[in-house]
């Protein structure tokens, strides 16, 4: 696993992150509104936000859309047993695909796991077959697990009170 020293956050940073993540104000001067809640000026908030962005803590301010409401995407999770000497090749083939949005090595016999999502009428099955062929990993060492139910996609974390997993505050 990649080692990285966590960025030091003070109380205001944590509260700001929590609000920007969960309750971003859809108003003309959003930073001023966040500042009011934290006792900071608009300019102080903007400066903090730019710093958190420069440090890589904030990836982006963006809209997250509901794929099901837009009605155009289907997805699957694939896993492969990849021999160590083929890993680099397989990863480079898999990552070429725009439709692959996540690709992780995991601690399991199936050591490579990636999601394939196609939108707007593109054929998911064809993409999956093409990836299988081009990686050269045999069918017997590959699984393809299409999504049957989407129960939750909500990539948010807790920065205040207890941590995201409660790990920091109550062990």
């Amino acid at each position: 696993m990649m080692k990285m020293e966590p960025v030091k956050l003070d109380k205001n940073d944590k509260e700001l992150l929590q609000l920007m993540q969960d309750e971003f104000p859809l108003e003309e001067r959003p930073w001023a509104i966040l500042g009011e809640k934290l006792g900071l000026t608009e300019d102080e908030v903007v400066a903090r936000v730019k710093k958190l962005s420069a440090e890589g803590v904030i990836r982006k301010l963006r809209t997250i859309l509901d794929a099901q409401k837009l009605g155009s995407c289907s997805s699957t999770l694939m896993a492969m047993k990849v021999p160590e000497d083929k890993m680099e090749h397989v990863v480079s083939v898999v990552n070429e695909y725009m439709s692959v949005t996540r690709n992780y090595r995991r601690e399991h016999d199936y050591n490579l796991w990636f999601t394939v999502t196609t939108c707007g009428g593109k054929n998911l099955g064809e993409t999956v077959e093409e990836i299988k062929q081009r990686t050269g990993i045999p069918e017997s060492d590959t699984i393809d697990l299409p999504t049957t139910h989407v129960f939750k996609i909500d990539v948010r974390f807790k920065f205040t009170d207890s941590g995201a997993d409660g790990g920091e505050s109550h062990g």
Binding site: M4, L17, Q21, D22, E23, G56, L61, F157, F159
Partner: peptide
């Protein structure tokens, strides 16, 4: 959702 996405590894 409209809001920031955070690189959780950084924190």
């Amino acid at each position: 959702r409209l809001g920031v996405s955070v690189n959780q590894r950084k924190v």
